[in-house]
Design a protein around this nucleic acid. Structure first.
Length: 135
DNA sequence: GCCAACGTTGGC
DNA sequence: GCCAACGTTGGC
């Protein structure tokens, strides 16, 4: 099972919005590298939910409930969307400063390519993040 | 096919 | 508000 990280600006769509909605369509991704990751997601796989700009922290976990399908918001029909459901909020948010300072998490794809909105997370990174999040 | 200009994202 | 990174566009 692969793991992922997705970014969202919380004033656009936050983790609490996802918790309220129960599930959501993750569309609007307009970057091919990110789209490749969306296409690779399998049902049931989990993703860290990161708040960009405001918050700048990983705040919880979402689960893929529908694999890639055409993004209806893309007029050219080239990009794809998936659907996520909430799994749980972290007991403790893991802030960007903590992530960057951590020897394991500091090497994550989201740090290396900071504009990438969907990125893969290794098993070691996943486990480390959960530990810092308080279990 | 190259590359400069430009737009977008996201951290600071 | 500024700037770095980087993807996209368009002229040649």
């Amino acid at each position: 099972m692969a793991h992922w990280l997705v970014k969202s600006e919380p004033d656009v769509y936050s983790f609490s919005d996802l918790t309220r909605d129960g599930r959501t369509t993750w569309d609007g991704v307009r970057n091919h590298a990110a789209a490749i990751h969306l296409k690779a997601m399998k049902e049931g796989e989990e993703a860290f939910f990161y708040h960009s700009n405001e918050g700048k922290a990983v705040v919880g976990i979402a689960r893929v409930v529908k694999t890639a399908f055409p993004d209806m918001s893309d007029p050219a029909g080239r990009f794809v969307a998936v659907e996520f459901a909430p799994v749980r909020a972290f007991p403790k948010e893991v802030g960007l400063a903590v992530i960057k300072a951590d020897p394991v998490l500091g090497k994550m794809e989201m740090i290396r390519q900071n504009r990438l909105s969907v990125s893969p997370v290794s098993d070691a990174e996943w486990a480390r993040m959960l530990k810092l999040a308080g279990g």
